[in-house]
Design a protein around this nucleic acid. Structure first.
Lengths: 350, 350
DNA sequence: TGGGTTGTGCAAAACGTTTTGCATCCCTAG
DNA sequence: CTAGGGATGCAAAACGTTTTGCACAACCCA
């Protein structure tokens, strides 16, 4: 009494939940070995056309789809990468994510969205995905200081690309970033030329090299007095910081430079709520140039960052590395920024 | 001559690329079996504390992290789901995505971003991820008509939840959606009360049940004459459709109802460029209430949708299903919408 | 003394692929 | 008649886990 070599079931077939067809099931039904099925489907080796046709018909009949998990395990890679960003509802990161997703899709990769809210625990968990090799690589676009340290420890061992961020003292880094320093400089020059001498600078969380670059460029080009307050890139924090200064009567500045457009919006709102006119009494400048910046009233003067390109470039670089196994030389793409002068800036009041 | 039972390398160790440590390497170094290592790490069975300590120390020394792929293969699930949306740079979907990501994170799931641009090929590829079981489930938030048909074929076999979408004739569906029909009705009533009798309705791509619901609700409540044009939910299409009608001199309407805010923005721009005043000459209404809607000039009258909650609810429902293996009864959450009356609507001109 | 229980750890199967080496058959050229 | 070789397809190993059944020792209670 012979037993079928493949596809035998251990329990009988009346089980309620049907296990999806495996390559063994196909092989058994077509009367061939799993090897042959694999070859038919992958084209890796020639198979007799008649046999192949039979296999294909069984594949269709059974609705067989190869389990990508098993395939990935065998191949040693998953064709998925992660994108770590703080806030997908920030239009800047949404645009960046779109660029990343496009680049990933072009090379047949999936993209896992790692939205962290600057939460260290959350960042850690997502960074763990690369250590457990569930993702082939990671595009890192800004996180909190602690995760930054973990990141730097990882960068030597795993494929990681930085989008719109920098890192100190690492030679072999893949970086695509807008020219933040130039952006800061442009704003500094603009405000100086308008006669401003004291500005309030709203920064993002500490520990972000991109933020440092913006501030450096700005301070250097501006030359006047700079009051600094630390926010978190959200609209609410811009509002809160400005409102607080206003209450305390300590806003003796003629301009506000926010680290991103969202905080600029918040600042703008706080100022108008306090009865101040923008740009009549005080000027406001943002950073990013998200869509709403040109639609708000008054239209916001801001630095345009090519968010889509930053995301796309960083991802493309990463994938060139992981997909072809190439180790690129330390590579940095610095994308140009431009100053969009709109209605929220004017010559200094006095 | 004895051979070590575990961890022997086939080629010598001077190979340039170091393979990450596996559970066998740990076992060999600690002088135990892989089984024991697994038990130490998972806590699935008690292990002698002394042995356990030794294993843990080796784990640290080798920097061992379990390969999630192998784990998933064995477990039969990946703890990852997909989110299929047309455009992440649309603030509505970004907000929805954020809700989905939050819900996924809460239950320890990862989220793959499937941004389709309504591109059928792209949708198909992403839908394939569920058939190959790379994702445990899918949250589907609107796609093109062809992918919709594929989706419906899939819904019986795989865990899929609909976010802000509907489906006909399917009992066992997981749905979380805003009340589109009520939204359309609110707009219809609002415009009727303002005395409008002819409105231009800019719809999204055909085949979206949510769009049909909006239109139905609107037409029924409005009662006047409705001119319909089909757009694609992008700002440019709103602009193009209105501009074209304007050129042809065929815009004999006193109001425009756009299927989403982005198209309303486009319409607004086209109207002002043509020298028309909003809402003086013509009123404009949107749908979604994305952040920019209240910031634009004039502030847009629109229907507020709880995008975050829609994403979060749909995802939570799906995960309750896939994570606990529970099969919920057909379940539909309809989330309330509200009309935000702002500055872009006024009584009909004549 | 003998049967049962508890503690401890290992072997082997299973998850579902791809890949490599080999066996068989048949044909052709020398 | 035989050596060589293409065509075809299979067996088995490998990827890295978790889980189940079992073995062995030590202990306890009757």
């Amino acid at each position: 009494m012979t037993r079928e070599p493949y596809g035998q079931r251990r329990d009988d077939d009346r089980s309620a939940v049907r296990r999806p067809a495996s390559i063994k099931d196909v092989a058994a039904a077509a009367g061939v070995s799993p090897t042959t099925v694999s070859h038919v489907l992958s084209g890796n080796r020639p198979v007799n056309e008649q046999t192949a046709a039979r296999v294909r018909s069984v594949v269709n009949r059974l609705g067989y789809v190869p389990a990508s998990l098993a395939r990935s395990l065998q191949a040693g890679s998953t064709s998925v990468i992660g994108l770590l960003i703080p806030d997908i509802s920030n239009a800047f990161f949404a645009e960046l994510a779109k660029g990343a997703e496009d680049a990933a899709h072009d090379l047949g990769y999936g993209l896992i969205l790692c939205n962290t809210e600057f939460d260290a625990e959350r960042e850690d968990r997502y960074l763990g995905m690369i250590r457990s090799r569930f993702v082939d690589g990671m595009v890192y676009a800004s996180g909190s200081a602690p995760s930054r340290r973990r990141l730097e420890a990882l960068m030597g061992k795993f494929p990681i690309a930085l989008a719109d961020e920098e890192v100190d003292g690492l030679e072999r880094a893949l970086i695509a970033t807008a020219d933040h320093e130039a952006g800061g400089r442009l704003v500094g020059e603009h405000l100086r030329e308008l006669g401003h001498r004291r500005v309030l600078m709203l920064t993002g969380p500490r520990g972000l090299r991109s933020g440092v670059a913006r501030a450096t460029g700005f301070v250097r080009a501006f030359g006047g007095h700079v009051v600094e307050r630390v926010g978190d890139f959200k609209e609410a924090s811009g509002h809160r910081l400005v409102a607080k200064l206003l209450e305390e009567g300590g806003l003796d500045c003629t301009a506000v430079f926010a680290a991103n457009d969202l905080m600029a919006f918040g600042a703008l709102a706080a100022l108008t709520e306090a009865g101040l006119s923008v740009p009549g009494d005080i000027s406001v400048v943002g950073f990013d140039d998200i869509r709403a910046a040109s639609q708000i009233n008054p239209p916001l003067t801001t630095v345009h960052q090519p968010a889509y390109d930053v995301g796309r470039t960083a991802t493309a670089q990463l994938l060139q590395y992981v997909s072809r196994g190439e180790v690129p030389p330390a590579s940095r793409h610095t994308l140009p920024v431009t100053l969009k002068v709109r209605g929220s800036t004017a010559p200094a009041a006095r």
